[in-house]
Design a protein around this nucleic acid. Structure first.
Lengths: 223, 223
DNA sequence: CGCACGGTTGACCTGTATCAAGCCGGGTGG
DNA sequence: CCACCCGGCTTGATACAGGTCAACCGTGCG
């Protein structure tokens, strides 16, 4: 958590100051929303355990998943700009977050340069993450998208100390599809095809990646 | 410029302090790059005049345009997270930018809360902008994408005091296509179709939006 | 135990890509 | 100053990836 969450190169007393900021912890049951579009922005959230998705609401009412979040992730940066959230965040399972009131965080960041830097890095990394999604949505074929998705999950689980090749999906095929700009049927078919090709074993939500290199090659396909 | 660029609600002496930060102005000829992927990050840029595109380099070498930028826009936020730029920025015409060294900017932000806030808002807005692009790429059809693109340009020109309905494109069909996740032929066909439908007049790079409302309706299509 | 939701699979359709040919206009060199 | 050339654009014919519609299955929750 300390690695992934806001702190990073902070002195222990600085971490303490940061922890004192945490005014509220909030537990969410599966399906509950942490915030919705247009909710007033009060602060950013650090995900303590569980997982969540964020989704953008289109003008026509349908929603597009913009990200999946797991422990250590920072959520809610979208609200800073306007003072209102521009997307919604929903728990994918029982989840706990803690609230970091943003005004206080800014105050602390003014006195603790390393915290200031860390905050900026977190925001910048979110921008870069989204660049990656744009690349995925803008120029990859369906199979590449799913490969990227699986490799990304693998990496993130691995960094958190879990297996890089075996994990349980917390989201439905439809949510995966929404995130990847595909329909759930396409996602399902791709899972089946990857299975036939010996790349993965999939049993509903449980996934086992049998050939990470093949998945990687699929993504780096030379033109 | 003062409206759009970093300052905003700053006292005049604070703006002065900010201007003192500007260590370098840089002029770019059409086609020159401001920075490239993996270039070390030194600071963010404010675009003084002209226009630019940013593009992400895919593993296979091809590039995807991630944004078009015009006067007042802040460029280069992607480099903060890792200390290196993760995309490249290229001038679309003769362009001038000024460099705001990031370390100094952070320093100043620690003493000038309004500047700190402004910086955070700028970064957050970039995140929100990218959400919009994700929605576009992930769930809109080609005609909707082009409509969004035109409406967005219209709005941005308008805010800068130019006509909302008449402007010159600074980018090629191919660059538009890359940004919208379409091929240049599709973009070209759509322009022709919009023309036939009386929505726009297009003469190469010069665009006239004849029916903004129709374009808006196209985007808000009810399901 | 049963029902409802999530997932799979098949048949068919369509929007966009691909390939290909030709056009237009602006900049360059003779 | 004109002609040529080349990059950018348009348009047509055809291909195909992924969407749509529909039927069925399986499994885990109430």
């Amino acid at each position: 958590m300390q690695e992934l969450c806001l702190p990073g190169g902070l002195e222990s007393d600085e971490i303490l100051a940061l922890e004192r900021l945490i005014t509220a912890r909030r537990r969410l049951k599966k399906g509950e929303t942490l915030y919705q579009t247009r909710d007033p922005f009060v602060g950013i959230f650090a995900l303590r355990f569980g997982s969540a998705k964020t989704a953008i609401l289109a003008a026509d009412g349908h929603e597009q998943v913009s990200g999946f979040h797991m422990v250590g992730d920072i959520i809610g940066l979208d609200g800073i700009g306007t003072g209102n959230h521009t997307c919604e965040c929903t728990a994918l399972e029982d989840t706990e977050v803690c609230l970091l009131p943003f005004a206080k965080l800014e105050e602390l960041a003014r006195v603790v340069p390393s915290l200031q830097q860390h905050l900026h890095r977190v925001m910048s990394r979110e921008i870069v993450r989204e660049h990656g999604v744009m690349l995925l949505l803008g120029s990859m074929r369906a199979e590449e998208r799913l490969a990227v998705f699986l490799l990304n999950l693998s990496q993130r689980y691995h960094r958190r100390g879990y297996s890089a090749s075996e994990f349980n999906l917390r989201m439905t095929r439809e949510e995966i599809g929404s995130f990847l700009g595909l329909k759930l049927e396409t996602v399902s078919r791709l899972f089946s095809r990857f299975h036939d090709e010996g790349l993965v074993e999939v049993q509903q939500r449980s996934v086992r990646l049998l050939d990470l290199d093949a998945l990687r090659r699929m993504v780096n396909r030379p033109v």
